[in-house]
Write a protein that binds this DNA or RNA. Structure first.
Ligand SMILES: [Zn+2]
Ligand SMILES: [Zn+2]
Ligand SMILES: [Zn+2]
Ligand SMILES: [Zn+2]
Lengths: 132, 132
DNA sequence: CTTGTAAATGTTATATTATTACATACTGTT
DNA sequence: AACAGTATGTAATAATATAACATTTACAAG
């Protein structure tokens, strides 16, 4: 059962716009889009983004400084994320592969370090771009 | 056999400072450190960083916007990188695990995408920080 | 040696991404 | 009502990164 997170007003506005876009959005592009709704300052956006990342509704694509809605309903905690990124068209999608996540969640080496979280980004060419 | 890359003056200065530090360095902290050597502008640093990343002498830690010297002599192409990051002391080290790299380099799913590169960041607590 | 070309450098300005600091308001609980 | 925790508003600024343009260096082909 998923934990219900009652999003606040700003959080909801910002989640909706990211979710609807279906692709990674940058903070200042979000800011631009929500100015008509009364959100005027970067900090208002970043605060909502922080919270949404924390509760796993969105993820940050680190290599792109962009945010995408979680495409994996079971991933409500942001502790194990994997993405595929097309270096040509910049299409991004969340990889949901149980073998991969199992492998990485259980990964350990001889460093003595306990891993509690990971983020993986694959790069390449998507189907479309490959065939051009 | 490793390809010999004859670093230019700026590239060498900037690689040396990162390599000696042994830990991730941020671009503007590098800039500060190299000002006595005549490198005065951000762009001079970023250009050298770009080139060093391209030839695999350093890697960017995306979640930290920082750069670390390659700790893995065999990793001369930046196409398969993995790091462990302590969320307490921010210690970072490059993971060199052939099973892991084999697993990820061969990873494919049904998206039709051909992955040519990946970057993985593990987070957790290092040995020291765990025992505190 | 000179001509061409790619890579590297220097310099200024500017764009993009993110946080600090401080004041105020809302939400739910005791 | 009093409190604690979360969320909001606003201004200023910090931190990260690139654009644009001029010049110089390295090196190979002719
Ligand atoms: Zn997700
Ligand atoms: Zn593509
Ligand atoms: Zn390496
Ligand atoms: Zn540590």
């Amino acid at each position: 059962m998923e934990k219900e997170h009652n999003l606040s007003k700003n959080q909801k506005i910002i989640f909706d716009i990211i979710d609807k876009s279906g692709e990674p959005m940058k903070a200042y592009s979000i800011l631009f889009d929500v100015q008509k709704k009364g959100i005027k300052a970067p900090l208002q956006v970043y605060r909502a983004l922080d919270k949404l990342v924390e509760i796993g509704k969105i993820h940050k694509i680190e290599s792109r400084n962009a945010f995408i809605a979680c495409q994996n309903s079971s991933c409500q905690i942001t502790k194990a994320t994997a993405f595929s990124i097309c270096e040509s068209c910049e299409n991004v999608s969340e990889i949901s592969n149980s073998k991969l996540s199992k492998y990485l969640s259980n990964f350990s080496d001889d460093s003595g370090m306990k891993y509690s979280k990971y983020n993986l980004e694959f790069f390449g060419l998507c189907k479309k771009c490959k065939s051009k």
